[in-house]
Amino acid sequence: MDINTIIMEKLTIAEETFESRLIVGSARFPDPDTMCRALEASGTEMVTVAIRRANLENNGQIDVLSYLQEGGYKLLPNTAGCYTAKEAVLTAKMAREALDTNWIKLEVIGDEDTLFPDVPELLKAAEELLLEGFVVLPYTNDDPITCKKLARMGCAAVMPLGAPIGSGMGIRNPYNLRIIKEQVDVPVIVDAGVGTASDAAIALELGMDAVLLNSAVSQAKHPVEMAEAMRKGIEAGRLAYEAGRMPRRLYAKASSPEEGLIDVQHNE
């Protein structure tokens, strides 16, 4: 087999296919140029944006959109900062109008210290947005039951957190993520918590379909290098998953043949 023909399986969300299994946020980069180079290095095809009140006094805001559109990325607006279903639904509708996309990364936050989701409000918002024809990608707890409910409702993917948003603590509950993957038949995207390339690799090795991250790249000392590392981590993790890892065992098993060893006389 030609080594160059080994490529990972593609990712499909709501009948749209992506080569990359990495979704990257556009927040908190040191400057637009670094953001553009990091996004390119990451290999991502989908980039998240936030919806905020326009600055009506000053039109000198950085027009992040022009940079992202130039890069040809699919935009995934989020409802970050929403604390109720009502806020999230209106934000999603405004995002749809502003960006001409019915895809939404649905976040309904429970409190500002943990940024954990408010699950009842999340479910309510998801239901409403699905009825409105949105492609809903909900950020949720690593809770299999909530993920099952969201998937059954018709969400296009579920996005359990690996660790709190912006914490960089990695994949804190790999077992729940595995259960979630077994329990839902939509893509599972680890959203939040990834801090470095090995975290991304672990998520993909566990069988997760993709990773959504932001701070891990934008807050790295060298965002462009970290973006490249993430791309490689994602690829390594996915290929390892597809390859199927060897079974774990408690005791050693020699890898060299056990037959044909030379005899040595042992003198007393």
Binding site: G25, S26, A27, R28, F29, M35, T48, V49, A50, I51, R52, R53, A54, N55, L56, Q61, I62, V64, L65, L75, P77, N78, A80, T91, M94, A95, A98, L99, I165, G166, N214, S215
Partner: peptide, 10 residues
Amino acid sequence: VEVIRATQGG
């Protein structure tokens, strides 16, 4: 009246 813009976000 709310006027919004898409901006950098994660």
